[in-house]
Design a protein around this nucleic acid. Structure first.
Length: 281
RNA sequence: GCGUCGGUGGUAGAGCGGUCAAUUACAUCAGACUGUAAAUCUGACGCCUUCGGGCUACGAAGGUUCAAAUCCUUCCCGGCGCA
């Protein structure tokens, strides 16, 4: 089995820099596993590596999609599989680096995602249903999947129904691996990681992150879409629209927004840790 | 100084005699994750517990009552109005 190196860990743990060094040492090429860095134009806010920082190491799966449209895991998996094959053919080692656990899972465990693309019309219709209605529908259509799904999560229920609509039922998930995986987990103690998140945020603001978001909007990305992108894009978008609510009368809107964003990033880092704990076993 | 409104759990903010350890939101902690995944969702959240319950709590001290976060008195602190 070919060897695959996976570098994961919470945001701000220093994965990108570490990966470049490792790629040089191990004759590797990097495959990003980041659900926001796949988009063109999301640079400062997503912490995308610059070509200078790449130090000549090839990076795959960056800037492969337009932020105007939703990019999905399925697309990611296809492109990543292809990149891995290309790298292996060159006799080099693929190094997957990123913080999006779901993306890593999909390629590393070769998840067979049901061949059912998102159905916009159906989703729009289902979004109007109450949680209970969605539950009833899925239970009637696919009782097996109903047993395993998180029945409180409308997003999951809708996707399940969407799959059942065309496949009749949701196929059982499979988790295998075609690779010999070398796991590398990067992290810091809470206080250190928090500090790193803070410092990095300040640096991004100085680099013109607010302008980046504003430009994305003036070039056609709706505020709603930017809000959906989460974290820096979400909070900057809210800030630029003056939709941030001040939590203390003495602070400025900007300071309040940064505080809220920092909290959100920390919460995200912890969700990432929760995901990656699985790999430790 | 007088008048007035208010002081509730980490924060904001409900409750206004019993059903209140106290609605809710946020934060915090833990967890889930089959095409939105930086998204979406779940649980815990005073202390102790043999999980029945016990103890300490709503600015402080007294009081009324079978019973007070809720009523009364005084005091302390903050906002506003008049001085």
């Amino acid at each position: 089995m070919p060897t695959l190196i996976v570098i994961c860990g919470p945001t701000a743990a220093g994965k990108s820099d570490y990966a470049v060094q490792l790629a040089k040492d191990r004759n590797g090429e990097i495959i990003s596993a980041d659900s926001r860095q796949v988009y063109k134009g999301l640079d400062i806010g997503s912490g995308k590596i610059t070509s200078k920082e790449m130090k000549g190491v090839p990076h795959h799966l960056l800037d492969v999609a337009s932020p105007a449209r939703i990019f999905t895991v399925a697309q990611y998996k296809k492109l990543a599989d292809k990149a891995i094959a290309t790298i292996l053919k060159k006799g080099k080692t693929p190094i997957i680096v990123g913080g999006t656990g779901f993306y890593i899972d999909a390629v590393v465990f070769d998840q067979q995602l049901p061949e059912v693309p998102p159905n916009k019309a159906l989703r729009k219709k289902l979004e109007k249903c109450s949680l209970a209605e969605l539950q009833e529908q899925l239970q009637a259509m696919d009782p097996e999947r109903y047993e395993t799904i998180d029945i409180h999560n409308p997003v999951r229920l809708i996707r399940a129904i969407e799959i059942v609509e065309t496949l009749g039922k949701v196929p059982a998930a499979s988790r295998t691996s075609k690779y010999d995986i070398e796991w590398i987990y990067l992290d810091f103690p809470d206080e250190v990681l928090k500090q790193r998140i803070h410092d990095r945020l300040m640096k991004r603001m100085k680099k013109g992150m607010a302008k980046e978001v504003q430009d994305l909007h003036t070039h056609g990305l709706s505020w709603k879409r930017l809000e959906m992108l989460g974290l820096e894009y979400r909070f900057l978008a809210l800030y630029l629209q003056q939709k941030i609510s001040k939590t203390a009368p003495s602070t400025t809107l900007r300071a309040d927004m940064l505080a809220q964003l920092e909290t959100a990033i920390w919460q995200y880092a912890k969700r990432q840790r929760t995901w990656f704990k699985k790999y430790a076993k």
